[in-house]
Design a protein around this nucleic acid. Sequence first.
DNA 1: CCCGGAAACTAAAAGGTTTTCGGAAACGTA
DNA 2: TACGTTTCCGAAAACCTTTTAGTTTCCGGG
Lengths: 334, 334
Amino acid sequence: MAGRRATINDVASLAGVSIATASKALNGRQDVRDSTRQRVLAAAEQLAFQPNALARGLLSGQTRTVGLLTSDSVGRFGIPVLLGAEDAFGAGEMAVLLCDARGDAIREQHHLRALLSRRVDGLIVVGESTDPRPSVSRDLPVPVVYAYGPSDDPGDVSFVPDDVGGAATAVHHLLALGRRRIAHVTGPEDYKASRDRAEGLREALAAADLPQAGETLWGGWSQRWGRHAAEMLLMAQPDVDAVFCGSDQIAAGFVEAARERGRRVPDDLAVVGYDNWEVLSTETRPALTTVDMNLERLGRTAAQHLFAAIDGRATPGVHRMPCRLVIRDSTAPA
Amino acid sequence: MAGRRATINDVASLAGVSIATASKALNGRQDVRDSTRQRVLAAAEQLAFQPNALARGLLSGQTRTVGLLTSDSVGRFGIPVLLGAEDAFGAGEMAVLLCDARGDAIREQHHLRALLSRRVDGLIVVGESTDPRPSVSRDLPVPVVYAYGPSDDPGDVSFVPDDVGGAATAVHHLLALGRRRIAHVTGPEDYKASRDRAEGLREALAAADLPQAGETLWGGWSQRWGRHAAEMLLMAQPDVDAVFCGSDQIAAGFVEAARERGRRVPDDLAVVGYDNWEVLSTETRPALTTVDMNLERLGRTAAQHLFAAIDGRATPGVHRMPCRLVIRDSTAPA
DNA sequence: CCCGGAAACTAAAAGGTTTTCGGAAACGTA
DNA sequence: TACGTTTCCGAAAACCTTTTAGTTTCCGGG
């Protein structure tokens, strides 16, 4: 804590020049003699002068600040997106104003007003799931980009992981390993993520002209469900040679139960997870082959496109970002 | 996106009053006739007027914004603290400016300048571990509160979990269950968190006049280490009847390996974890009894104290926040 | 010595809001 | 009617910076 902060006025006085000259000297503009510039810089240094971003923003109409609105508590998926965005902004001297609506539409509206009142240059809305969410961009004076959870308005700019493609990649991997009887255990059917991944599996199998081993098993996202599903599946369909799980949690439960039942992973049974949640995927035995949604990159890309939109170069539509297969020890040739 | 934003000037014109009157009407001040106030409010509504927080802040010197500086990537422990802080601020109409220094001192300094330039009213610094970190508060014009990782300057305000007390609580629980041969498996010795928890264990055992079962096993924070430690410990000291683990990851690995070795948890062996990281603590078999550091509350408390400090009522020193034992199925009477 | 042009500098305005202070109108009292 | 009081409203200053549009200074050339 210290006294009143120095203004450019103080700097100018100390350097014995006008405010205008001080401003130019500090901002590296022309029209100021080199000796004068040195005097001003020294004065600024001595007074620990920090230009007031409020005054600057008031004048320029640009705050170099963006709002980051998370619809639900910053969760598992929001974090990497946030990190990526923060990363992209940090490089460009932008700052991030964080707001968490906790799934409450009223609170969201409230935060929205607060952000606009603070004159943010743009907005990133991070969804908690890949299900479309109500658009917030109607008549907003700033550009908005949606990340992870897309807007329900196709005129908005959204970035989502390509779950269909990610699942297909996983299944192609299993097929390439010579697996032919592939089952699917996944999360609740009312999640778009579940449905998309099941869809990707279906497409990949159809392309290979193979049937799916049994019906898709819909359940929860938990390890508990993974264990339970393993028991059911290994009982009902003892001849499956591969399982594609809708999440790493499910896969972790699955390999654990399979192991206890004496199935060797990956020899008897190849298992692929989803999310690449490292605390799980690298710590199971064996470590999980899994699909990484590249969320940090997604966040970074969203941020970069927000920049573009702020500059008037928007790119409307839902952009599907490719996922990446991370191969570990839970898959091997048949 | 829409056209130019309405200013209070536009509102005043539309309502047919001066800006002074408009301001008073909008801010619910006295000295304005009720009918006039209604006219102004209607005009503001019609123009979707949002007061410019920059202009307001420039005048008042208060931005109602705080900076949240995380020393390392917002991680496992930073998130709940952040959430708690965001929660406390949200209620008071404050906003949070998020900066992530990624463990880089240069970047931290850079973010610090940016935050001060934006005239934040205060600062929360979130550490990545409970080890003290360099103070950042020298000659800063705003108050600073440290959360999770304390400042190395005792004159600063810091909030940290009481790991010594948390560990002691865990051990008291084991003692109350009739366990007498208690071992300790924990993380790296160069973490203050490890040392504090070992210290809590030592104190609790000393108070009960009992020796510790074997030396403390220092290792990593991983499940892998938990499994490995279980193998070593159960071989070397087959008669231990309880294990206090320094983290849930270690405990998860430990119970898994113990289970495979035929030890029944909790009957033969009671196990307590630390952190209450729910993805692990509720999904192991059995679910883990563990110590919860109440990080969200810690963040909220830190934020509230920052408020107080902004109002000039600082509370210097390191404040240790109590931990809470969460009893699940991995502990039972001997 | 004067002029033209470039270089270096400054006064003033602009940006949006709040607050202070003074003025005007309305009203009650002598 | 004259005067004091209350109520309501508006002009202007203040917050801090950048930019525009001058103004002064300096120099070389005529």
